[in-house]
Amino acid sequence: MPLWDWNYAFDILPDLLLALVTTIEITVLGSVVALLLGLVFAVLRRLHIPVLDQVLWAFVEVVRSTPLLVQVFFLFFVLPQFGITLSAFVVGVVGLGIHYATYTSEVYRAGIDAIPKGQWEACTALSLPRLRVWTGVILPQAVPRVLPALGNYVISMFKEVPLLLAIGVVEVVNEARELGSLTFRYTEPYTIAGLLFLLLSYPASMLVRRLERRRAAA
């Protein structure tokens, strides 16, 4: 038996690509959750609302310091006991989204902190309403600055999707495992799975780096 069987590799490629679509779907939906929720966290933290501030801090620290896999198990096994049963796909999106929201919130925070104090003072001098200060002045400056960092987290999320095979989500690696178990040949499925990740995430991170350099130069 050869170490690498091209025929087999081409046979399984369509199935793996199909599973890759699921991986991308989860990445995109999870990113939407992470990018929006992270922004909410960052702004709420900045408002320093008593109690809520401490609760959010603790939540962010716990989520950042514990494994995503355990959090996914938590959503998958604990929520049904409270009458909330989510599909594995949804648990994946929500778990990934919340986990990465705690990271993106730090990114937004850094972006907001980088806005010079003079901008806030000019807003006060113009008596701008608080909502407008955020939507008109602070966020339009802070968010573009942190886009590259956010992009990096989206790529990280993409690479973490395979973890969801632990709750039965059929993404690329799970598909590779199932294909392999039919023939007891794992070399091709896992290698192709790895290459698919590299093929997507490497160009994506190059893109982010270019964006970063453009921002730095501007």
């Binding site: 010079p116 003079g118 901008q119 001098a125 113009l126 309403p129």
Partner: peptide, 22 residues
């Protein structure tokens, strides 16, 4: 202000109409 503190994300017009409109 000493350092102007114009809003860099808006044009000159945007800076000038921001307060009056909002």
């Amino acid at each position: 202000f000493q350092q102007f503190n114009l809003f860099p994300n808006m044009t000159v017009r945007g800076n000038l109409i921001e307060g009056p409109t909002r």
